[in-house]
Design a protein around this nucleic acid. Structure first.
Lengths: 336, 336
DNA sequence: TACTCGTATGTGATCGGTCACAATTATGAG
DNA sequence: CTCATAATTGTGACCGATCACATACGAGTA
């Protein structure tokens, strides 16, 4: 009843050679005579034989599998990164096992890591944009498996790839200051995200550097809905701002909705800028001025960095930086 | 140099028992005396021993790994589905290996499937919303591994979970007809997606049933940008429509942008409806009337269906249906 | 002819677990 | 006191591949 799959030995028996010879054919080893090779390949094709990768992994102690551990999936950025990790990994001959962590509890982390290390993946990519998971914490759970972090805390000497959020924030804040805005409010991302912290801090720093006083800042949760609610709070508390810096594009959408609801025009009354440059941002009304992060490059670099680390474990550790860029559209204009 | 990890035999040696006893402790087998169990567990903890799942998989011929094969990832729907598959699978003790197919070429499919079957995953979930990958084609590449499809062609007697797109399309089309719209245009999804086909066909069918003539329909690619471009084409060709049915929310966003660009008001001049109910849809201006699909349920049901199939391969094959629901907001109103 | 050498092929041990069965000890019944 | 039974523990074979090594063979050289 149970369909048994063919093994190396089945092929060997039928092709009348030893199992080692079959193994050689599969691995394209040179010293097999052309006739033998042809005969074995014929049998392989006829049987539809497929080598058992589990057995191979056990024998060579290498699984050709990478793991992605994702915190805060379901947000645009992490999703894009994972997509590109998969693409890059596949191109380089690795499969991906994918594990999401929703609440960053130590328990959930522990369990997920044990699972991955038990599976003997060759390397781990951790998308860890939130505080609470320092490299050392993660690495201690790795049992010696190479680890590369994506978007962790910036400035650490650990194997990782990060976007220079501070730079992006300065770009956009100085752009608004340059236009003449003096009263700026902010809707930040959740302040347990490194990126949100960096952007928020740079926002206040840039304002102070220009001799300006930051207006109120509210912490959102990345969703359009929280952008909407935060903007309403802002308008109730302290409606005098002429520019609003928002932590991502979705929240910017919600904020613009709230602004319009109060009869304020964007950008005439209030300029709004976002962050990320999601594909829809160009079709918001007004088209959103925002900061573009290259999530694709982030994922691809992460994989390359990890593989390098796997091949040559003694490579000097480093943090790769990526720089975001300002995308100017119609949602920001000089104050009236 | 190379860090060697501990094995069952190491633990056995140190705890002074046989390897079989250690195996029993790990698998919570009843017939181990409490003292022995305690002693072994102590050694396991001290050594930080982790069972090698690769070896276990080989021995028991079961990997506790599921594969997701995704066509057309990078779209909102598939992403959500994958997220929920992961969540459900993890809760049930399965890991996920994740493989995306970008262009639906037979080659890429073949390669991806060979990879997965070679890895001896326990089951495969294929998110296959596009034509060209019938169940039989996929199943023939499965080497007997259980397969469940998500969002394949509707109406087939194959193990699968689908959203009744036809129902959703009728819901929204009849809603507009009921408001008095007589001239309706459409921006459909790519017509190699089953969902797009079903919605398009039902759209024309519903109109005919009401004695109305469908206006022009243009095929988009799901992106906001294509929604924008399609709407412009529609407006150039045949500007007389009072309602526009759009294949998803992102394209609806683009379409609304184009409409406004021509000075048309939504919903006053033209009603617009979307499909999917992405979290941002409530913050479009006007807030988008759309059809909600429960992607979470889709993923969760897919996994449960697959596991059932794995446990009991003789279960009668069936297609599970999910019904979408109309979400009324502000983007549709009676024609003037 | 004998010797080396390179090519082609086969054998046994191994990776780290599991399974089926055997062996040992303790317990209770006849 | 002996035997059947159960609880605990150990042994050998096996899952399906790889690796290191041994062997057979024909060709080239001395």
């Amino acid at each position: 009843m149970k369909k048994q799959r063919y093994t190396l030995h089945d092929v060997a028996r039928i092709a009348e050679v030893s199992y080692q010879t079959v193994s050689r054919v599969i691995n394209a080893h040179p010293s097999v005579s052309p006739e033998t090779r042809a005969r074995v390949q014929k049998v392989i094709a006829e049987l539809g034989y497929q080598p058992n990768m589990v057995a191979k992994s056990l024998a060579v102690n290498r699984s050709h599998t990478l793991a992605v551990l994702v915190f805060g999936m379901s947000h645009y950025g992490p999703t894009q990164i994972v997509l590109n990790i998969e693409r890059t990994a596949k191109a380089l001959g690795y499969d991906l096992i994918f594990s999401a962590i929703n609440q960053p509890s130590s328990d959930a982390l522990h369990q997920a890591m044990d699972n991955l290390t038990g599976r003997r993946v060759d390397g781990i990519l951790a998308i860890s944009p939130v505080v609470g998971f320092a490299y050392d914490d993660l690495a201690s759970l790795c049992h010696g498996i190479p680890l590369v972090q994506i978007d962790p805390e910036i400035g650490l000497e650990v194997p990782s790839v990060v976007v220079e959020q501070t730079y992006g924030s300065r770009l956009v804040t100085e752009y608004l200051i340059g236009m003449g805005h003096q009263r700026m409010a902010e809707i930040s991302g959740p302040l347990n995200w490194f990126g949100a912290i960096a952007r928020h801090e740079q926002w206040t720093a840039s304002l102070h550097a220009a001799g300006l006083q930051p207006q109120k800042s509210i912490e959102g949760d990345w969703s359009a809905d929280s952008g909407y609610r935060s903007a309403r709070l802002l308008l109730n508390d302290d409606p005098g701002f002429t520019a609003l810096v928002v932590g991502n594009d979705q929240m910017a959408l919600g904020a613009i909705y709230a602004l319009r609801e109060r009869g304020l025009r964007v950008p005439d009354d209030v300029s709004v800028v976002g962050f990320d440059d999601i594909p829809e941002a160009a079709f918001f009304r007004p088209a959103l001025t925002t900061v573009q992060q290259d999530f694709n490059a982030l994922g691809a670099m992460g994989v390359r960095c990890l593989l390098e680390f796997i091949e040559a474990p003694d490579t000097p550790v480093q943090q790769h930086l990526l720089y975001p860029k300002l995308i100017v559209r119609d949602s920001a204009a000089p104050p009236r």
